[in-house]
Design a protein around this nucleic acid. Structure first.
Length: 163
DNA sequence: TAACATTCCGCGC
DNA sequence: GCGCGGAATGTTA
């Protein structure tokens, strides 16, 4: 079940499962900007409530603030390792940062730095799961699957400095 | 098995 | 100090 979220940065697309928010896509460039819904289907009250939370949280992060409340997240698409990484990233506050090696240490696999990078790239809910706050060693920017411009923009909005 | 959103170390400039 | 090359390394499809 997919619903759009309109923001000043474009229309994000949120996917909901029975369990909660399962995925968020960045604005895809195409201007199929419809009001606030897409692939039909009756929207349950449950999902409407989740979508409200998602929308609010997304806008908060986009404006550099710490979200008050997140909808339930459905991370069942990930492996156990990936969920460890994603949960670790959720603990990074707005305006804060970590590093690939920092996350690796947090989850008790200090040598899995490279694999952490892979898990970041597999993050199904960017922005809300702040993969953009993970920098490379030495404060260097590192990578970003959805485009480094997004990473730079999000970090700058949160007042974070990087090389 | 190959492919990575890494990191560390050693060189040469 | 900075950039480049290469090795070590864990996870995934």
């Amino acid at each position: 079940l997919k619903l759009y979220i309109h923001t000043p940065e474009g229309a994000f697309l949120a996917h909901y499962s029975r369990q909660g928010l399962a995925r968020v896509n960045f604005p895809s460039g195409d201007r199929s900007a419809k009001p606030d819904e897409t692939v039909g289907q009756p929207v349950s009250a449950q999902v409407k409530a989740w979508h409200g939370l998602t929308t609010t949280a997304l806008k908060e992060v986009l404006s550099g603030r710490q979200p008050r409340k997140l909808p339930p997240l459905d991370l069942s698409c990930g492996t156990e390792f990936q969920r460890l990484v994603w949960n670790a990233m959720l603990k990074i506050p707005a305006g804060g940062t970590s590093s690939y090696s920092g996350i690796a240490g947090d989850i008790g696999r200090p040598k899995a730095v490279r694999a952490v990078g892979g898990a970041c790239g597999a993050n199904p809910i960017p922005v809300l799961i702040p993969c953009h706050r993970v920098l490379a060693a030495g404060g260097r920017l590192g990578g970003f699957s959805s485009g480094l411009d997004w990473k730079r923009k999000l970090l700058t909005g949160e007042g974070v400095l990087f090389l």
